[in-house]
Structures are given as structure tokens and as C-alpha cells.
Nucleic acid binder design. Sequence first.
DNA 1: CGCGTTTGACCAGCGC
DNA 2: GCGCTGGTCAAACGCG
Length: 319
Amino acid sequence: MPLLHHEDPSSSLLFSNMPGATHRHDLSGAVDVAPYVMSFADYLHGAVDYAALARGFDALPDHGMLIGGCIDNSNSGAEKLTAPDAAGGGGATPMTANSSVSSSSSEAAVGDEESDLCRKEKVKEEEEEEEEEEKEKIKEGEEGSEKSKKVTNPKKKGEKRHREPRFAFMTKSEVDHLEDGYRWRKYGQKAVKNSPYPRSYYRCTTQKCGVKKRVERSHQDPSIVITTYEGQHNHQSPATFRGGMHHFVAPHAAPSCFMSQDFLVQQVANSMINNNGHQMGINPSLYLPSLQPTLQQHQFPDYGLLEDIVPSFIHSNQP
DNA sequence: CGCGTTTGACCAGCGC
DNA sequence: GCGCTGGTCAAACGCG
């Protein structure tokens, strides 16, 4: 699992790309984080509004901690987040710096079920371009007609379910449903295989906003909540309008995509600072050099942005 | 009354 | 074809 390494065992920040298509690591545990960097950057610029979710990290009632996340905007990668139980070295290990290395090396073991799911997701997500339109058509088409008894929309045979890009992350939190500024309606709950904790399904209540999120708790470390966002909000966070959500809600009405980038990255930065205000020893040199120059060039088109937003930990850790 | 949650049922996809 | 699993629906219910 690609990671941002730091030395504070009391907290951690880890991002992972969806294992599968691009993620790779060797047996020594050294991880090629290029895929992560690319996906993360791409995702930040993919108009996915995770401002609110980012805000949520900071707004956690119990100061829930962002400890990991993974991004998939490729529609070709698996979606599964490598949870501690999944990625965490086979132990009930919180995603601490100490555990993170083992987590990467043990990702295969991470979970057989996880990797299996990844493969499934990969296949599923490969075809999804027209689903939104399809949905709209179906909706409109059926609006007046008899309400279909079918649970799902009638689709042409062979047409696979289309998935929105997803962003998954883990937070250490007591509460399952993290306040992220948006309003969500729970529409389902399922028992998770091999886990005593159920998975909850939420949908953004805003009309025409099809963003969904799944929330589940790691059975290996119940204090860790795994949240997966799917899709992107086509509206601003209600919290933004309310203005009372949090102190770092942008006062200006910038396009959500940009706001989200800022917020998310800011939260990344914030997350690297523990509750005592101590900066963690995140050293980009731990992962950046692993990138091939060409990859760096291509995968960091917006590194300037990141650097602008998260300069503190980048620079402060440079020799 | 409006909104959100709970929960059982249903469906699609996949592996065997 | 069958069984399993993930995902979704929608009726019933609770709450303010």
C-alpha cells in the first residue's frame, strides 16, 4: 500500500490507490506510489467534490482521524480500500507508520476477499460511460408509467452496472456516519461477510445528486471506519451555505471542484498534524524519489497545486 | 407532515 | 442451473 510515511505511531495518514490495475509493490515492501500520486492528483482535479468529506475529517466529534484513503477515477481500477484488516499486515493494526510498511507488503494477504472484490470491481467499472444518461432516460421514461416492481432499472441484457469513480478512505472514529456537510439518506444496510459489522448505504438527499457512500467498520479494528464515496456532488455542500459547519469553509463561492481540491488537500495536510499540533515526520522523499522522472513529470502536472496547499509538511521535512 | 431510518425482499453479477 | 454476495428498493416505522 502506498503511503505517506511518518514516524508518529499515534496517528497516521495513508493513501492508497485501488489495488489492481496499477498498484504494484515488491516483496520487500517497497511500494511504487506513482499510481497513488497520479490517482490522487487526478482525482483532485477530477471535479469530485470531497470538500465536505474533507471537512468532515476535521469535524469529527471525536476527532476522527483520517488514516487512509484510496481513489479510483479511472473506472478501470478496483475500488476496494485496503482497510487495516485488508492492508494492515494481517493484524488488527491501526494504520500507523510502523504498520504501514507491513501493510504494503502484505497487501496480497490483505485480504483474499478484498483482492477478489477488486477484480470484480475492475470488471464492473470498465463499462460505465452511458449509465448516467441511461438512468436519466429510464427515470424519465418510467416517471409516469407504472411503477416498476423491479428493484433495479430494466437494463438491456449484457449491460453491466456502471459505477462512478470512487474515493475510499479510513477514519479512526467512534461514529460510523461521519458528518461531512452533506445530507445523506440511508437506503440500505447489509451484513458484511466475515465481519460482525454491517455496511450502510447512504445517498445524497439533494435532488439529482446521485452521490452515494458506503460506510462500514473494519472488523479487525472496530475503531476504524471505512467510507467509500461514489460519484460526485453536482451541488455545493449545504454546510457551505449554512456557513456554520466549520472554520475553514471557504467564504468564496468557488466551483466545488476547486474547493474540494483545496479542502481535501488541506485536510491531508491537516491530518498530518496531530492533535497536539505537532507536525508529523512525513517525508516526501520517502516516496517521491521512487517515481520515474517521466512519471513524475506526467503524474505531477498539478504538483504545484499540492505544494501550494501542503507546503508545510513538504518543505519542513526536506533536509 | 416531512424527513430519515430500519428491514425484509428482490435483483444482478459472478463463480462453481 | 444454483448458490452466494453486493447493492438497491420500498413499506413500515420513528421522530421532531
